[in-house]
Each structure stands twice: as structure tokens, then as C-alpha cells.
């Protein structure tokens, strides 16, 4: 596999609430020959609070990172977080308009070209390495594991900005998980909203929306949900206890980052992949991977 260098934008949650996503992302990229160079002294993209407050502020926070990345010798900017990704891509797109470009530059006080390709880690990994090629590196196939892929609402949408995969029925995670040996169940809520950051102010909204996702995953017989977004993962995993309380359910549904499961299949250790950081204990589910018959026994 050839090595390609990318400017890596971890996003703030990767330093805290989704630290396992950051660590497992770095491990996966390393094993597949995608070299990550952290954008030095990167700052927060502003996330939803910025674009919901002002588009110029949002773009300016993003643009500082674009400018720093543009001084690096890289093929593009990649990030694991869909929310960061949408902000980075939206800003880069809007900065193609000169008037807006000039305004942003005057606030950032740096020249910004806004011409580097910006992609998710998921897209980069799959473009770098076809799922079939990844399959040939699998040392611990995820045989016996039934998963539902959950992309979240903005990994592929709006399609004009994200330009990756299908906005209604994305299949990149499906293909990756299938290549790793897992059984991927057809999931109708692939791109449905989990409630995002409303959990802090209106928990009822998140327990309703994320509850629906857990209900369907369980009804389909999934052993786990595979996520690609820190916000979704947090709502489904850390808030699963709140959801169960609010909806009178008893879900025990591990919610993995796809990078964790990929790492596992490629032979990385569970501790390196920070499986212990997940709130819903995945130990029973992970035992299925080694011994699919275990499922029968546990029932």
C-alpha cells in the first residue's frame, strides 16, 4: 500500500468525549498507510454553535485551520468528525465567492486559499483501500457479529456540499463492515437524526430520537451499532441509560466507532482500541467475534 500524507483535524471531542474515536482512527490510518500529520495548533471549528450564531464567525474559525493546513505538504485535510467535516467543507465552498472570501480573510488576518480537498477519514480510507483490499488484511474476521451501520445525518448530507456516498442510502460503512466479516443488517435509520446536541437542553428530544434508533436496531436482531459520528455515538452510548429510563426499555446495545471494529479485525488489541471507554460494556458482544456459537449459549 502506498503512503499518502493528509493534514489531520481531530476535532475537539477527539480530545475528550470521543477520545477512543481519535485513537482508533489514528491506528486504522497507520495500518492502512494513510499518514496523518496533525494540523499544528488547530482550533475548534465552532461546530453548530458557531454556524447557528453567524456564518462569518463560523467560516473564520474554520479558515484559520485551512490556512495552517495549506502551509503543509499534504494531499488534503481529513477529519473523523462529520460535524467538523460539514463546517470545513461548507466554509471552503462558500469561500469560492470572492466577496465572502475577502471578508473571512480580513477577520482571520491570514491568506486562505480554501483549495485543499477536504474529506472524512471514512471516505479517505475507502478511496485509499478498496474494501476487498482491506479484507485481505483482516486477521480476526468479525464473523458472527450482526451490526447495523449508523452514518448519522450529516456524513453524506447535504449532498451538494458533502459529495460522498448516497445521501439516502449510503453504503460505505456497509461495504467496509462486510469486508471485515461482519453481517450487516439493512437499517432504515442509517441517516436519521439522533437529536444531536439538544441532549443538554431538551433531553426528551434525544431520548425519543435516539430511542427509535436503538429500538429498530434491537428489533432487527443487531448485536451492535456501528457509528461514524462522535455526537451520535455519545447520544446512543453514554445516554443509553437515560434513554432506557425515559422509554422504559432495557437496551444493552454497544455502539462502536467503525474504526474500533476495523482495528479489531485488523488485529489491533482491544485495549489499544480503547474498548473500555465505551459506556455500554461491549465485552459480551466482542466474545461473539471469537466464538459465534457463544450467542446461542448466552440465550
Amino acid at each position: 500500500m502506498s503512503v499518502t500524507q493528509y493534514a489531520y483535524y481531530p476535532g475537539c471531542s477527539g480530545m475528550g468525549s470521543s477520545i477512543e474515536y481519535d485513537i482508533s482512527t489514528r491506528a486504522l490510518c497507520k495500518s492502512l498507510g494513510v499518514e496523518l500529520l496533525d494540523i499544528p495548533d488547530w482550533n475548534c471549528c465552532g461546530s453548530t454553535p458557531a454556524h447557528a450564531s453567524d456564518h462569518l464567525l463560523s467560516a473564520s474559525l474554520v479558515a484559520r485551520n485551512l490556512a495552517i493546513a495549506e502551509s503543509m505538504d499534504v494531499a488534503g485535510i481529513i477529519t473523523p468528525c462529520p460535524s467538523c467535516l460539514k463546517n470545513l467543507k461548507t466554509t471552503s465552498l462558500r469561500m469560492q465567492r470572492k466577496a465572502f472570501h475577502d471578508k473571512v480573510e480580513s477577520i482571520v488576518e491570514r491568506p486562505v486559499r480554501a483549495d485543499l480537498p477536504i474529506k472524512s477519514v471514512l471516505q479517505t480510507v475507502l478511496e485509499h483501500c478498496e474494501p476487498e483490499a482491506i479484507a485481505s488484511h483482516v486477521s480476526r474476521p468479525l464473523k458472527g457479529l450482526k451490526v447495523v451501520p449508523y452514518y448519522g445525518c450529516i456524513m453524506n448530507r447535504p449532498p451538494d456540499v458533502m459529495t460522498f456516498d448516497d445521501p439516502e442510502n449510503p453504503t460505505s460503512l456497509d461495504r467496509l463492515m462486510t469486508a471485515l466479516g461482519a453481517e450487516v443488517l439493512p437499517f432504515p435509520h442509517k441517516v436519521d437524526c439522533c437529536g444531536a446536541s439538544l441532549g443538554l437542553v431538551r433531553r426528551d428530544l434525544v431520548t425519543t430520537l435516539s430511542g427509535r434508533i436503538l429500538d429498530t436496531a434491537a428489533a432487527l436482531g443487531a448485536h451492535a451499532i456501528v457509528a461514524a459520528c462522535p455526537m451520535c455515538q455519545m447520544n446512543l452510548d453514554m445516554r443509553q441509560s437515560q434513554i432506557n429510563r425515559a422509554n422504559h426499555t432495557r437496551h444493552h446495545m454497544p455502539v462502536f466507532y467503525y474504526t474500533q471494529l476495523a482495528g479489531l479485525a485488523l488485529g489491533q488489541s482491544e485495549s489499544c482500541l480503547c474498548m473500555d471507554k465505551l459506556c455500554v460494556n461491549p465485552a459480551d458482544t466482542l466474545r461473539l467475534v471469537d466464538c459465534p456459537a457463544a450467542e446461542e449459549r448466552t440465550r
Binding site: 447557528a52 448530507r157 445521501p167 437524526c193 444531536a196 439538544l198
Partner: peptide, 10 residues
């Protein structure tokens, strides 16, 4: 309460 999920836009 809009979560910026982009379904409407899509």
C-alpha cells in the same frame, strides 16, 4: 430546536 440535520435541504 432545529438540529441542522439537513434532511429538509436534502
Amino acid at each position: 430546536l432545529c438540529a441542522s440535520c439537513e434532511t429538509c435541504t436534502t
